[in-house]
Design a protein around this nucleic acid. Sequence first.
RNA 1: GGUCGGGUAGCUCAGCUGGAUAGAGCAACAGCCUUCUAAGCUGUGGGUCAAGGGUUCGAAUCCCUUCCCGAUCACCA
Length: 597
Amino acid sequence: MNIEEKLSAVVKAAVSALYGIEADDKSVQLSATRKEFEGDLTLVVFPFLKASKKKPEETAQEIGDYLVANASEVEKFNVVKGFLNMVIKKGHWVSALNNILADDNFGKKTPTPESPLYMVEYSSPNTNKPLHLGHVRNNLLGSSLCRILEACGLRVVKTNIVNDRGIHICKSMLAWKLFGNGETPESSGKKGDHLVGDYYVKFDKEYRAQVKELMSQGQSEEDAKKNAPLMVEAQQMLKKWEDGDAEVRALWEKMNNWVYAGFDETYKRMGVSFDKIYYESQTYLDGKAKVNEGLEKGVFYRREDGSVWADLTKDGLDEKLLLRADGTSVYMTQDIGTAQQRFRDYDISRMIYVVGNEQNYHFQVLSILLDRLGFKWGKDLVHFSYGMVELPEGKMKSREGTVVDADDLMDKMVEDAKQMSLELGKLQDCSEAEVDEVARICGLGALKYFILKVDPRKNMMFDPKESIDFNGNTGPFIQYTHARICSVLRKAAEMGITLPNKLNEDLQISDTEGMLIQSLASYPDVVAQAGKEFSPALIANYIYDLVKQFNSFYHDFSILKEGNEDVRAFRLLLSKSVAKVVKSGMGLLGIEVPERM
RNA sequence: GGUCGGGUAGCUCAGCUGGAUAGAGCAACAGCCUUCUAAGCUGUGGGUCAAGGGUUCGAAUCCCUUCCCGAUCACCA
């Protein structure tokens, strides 16, 4: 039980004894005291004024007296208006630090075989182009969310649905066939996903030229788009694919494999992975079957042209197409099939889709459709809807070449980190491999932190012209603090200082140190909150605050030069605990921390 | 037009289950390295929390109206 919970109980006892009311959790508002006032924890007494029928100051005074008499942790208190500021005994903070030191898994819970199973879908790329910054946000949020949920004691299956079929892939295939001259990743030295993406762009370029040409011959834009030879041929290719044409299937497999090899590299570098990957080429048939089943049961209806629809007007939505007139499936159909397979494969208690907020409507519809098809978990699916990454000129658009490529961005970040490191010259006695490793950790750390510190639900801005910072509220700032602590601990070891496992609670510590421990002690609550709200940003902002606080302490207090050995040992263990929490929290964000930089 | 988001310092973002004088970083300016890593620390300036109304002892936070921005309502995924 932490100090807030303990004191909360005593406050309830206090108002019960003093004013004869049973206070609920909501009315007991305890929070960290603002730094301009004396104290560690503050109780807001306004909610009790009705019962006390006394002035705020008087009420606070009475509750304060009760707390000092009945809560051993409370040393004294002061009252400012309706705020009761409690000073907690220093011994309590030392004891709290002892608890943190003793717990190797501090802040995290361990899932058991009985824990609920959460399946988290994220990444979900198309196989016609490389990953860009938008995918990066998705991947980082998804993988971090999985780590956080596990730290909250849940079992997690990380999954990915690869959209490996459809007209967009056929476009790349066709362009490669027509203009590729047999180019391969080996022959060109290009990463497979980039190579395939190049042909997707090539298709679009040639296609637009054809549309323009047809329009100059007098066709309407709509007709021209439909009749352009390239589009006609791509559609024929899609049809051949569905019919199982051997040649088309072979090309499809070849090019998809190029893409997968490229994705694997990018995923590995980002530090994301999956327990189970689904492919739409293997789920869309199940989806079609399920839709046809729904059609027979009268859940859906067929129009004159043969297409199949769901009527959602009773739910306040529109009508939704599920099968085209030619019987081919759409996105929604595939998602139904995928969902079915997943629940067949795993005993899922909750399904979470990490997908951008542009698809809010899609998931609203999916939830209803699954429910109507008789899947009892349909209603409870969670769409973890995150905001878009915007550029100064607006949304990223593949065709307009305004995308920020994931691989390029990571390269740039690592390069910048190396440059910075060389300029500062702190790693002069390291091998080149070590220098590169630090640059990798810091560069990726800067990128990941930059993205994860923002509230997932909000759109965020990225300006490619301005490089991501390494100072201030950034990943490297936090990593730097960790490296410094490691450095101090290394020096302590060199000096032959041995650290006790447990500190004497009579030790006199400063307010600064007490407050630092108070921050450390709140880490488990932050992790729980992040899991509840699906927000890695809460962890990022917490670590930043913690680190800022530590840096201030580090500046104002000596550690190794402290004359009193007990105090020196305390400060070393305090620093060590900060490093431990920083490493743990950054770990939940998928960010590594270096031991020197 | 319907639905759903969002608008906080010059810029990027916290704060939003109502609590004290709205916070950080970047940018600007001024200090701090013979002392544990200056990717750091300290300070200054910078705000009509989009606007108006309401609820409340108390509103950036909750409710209503208006304005602005975005997403979506595809036989794309």
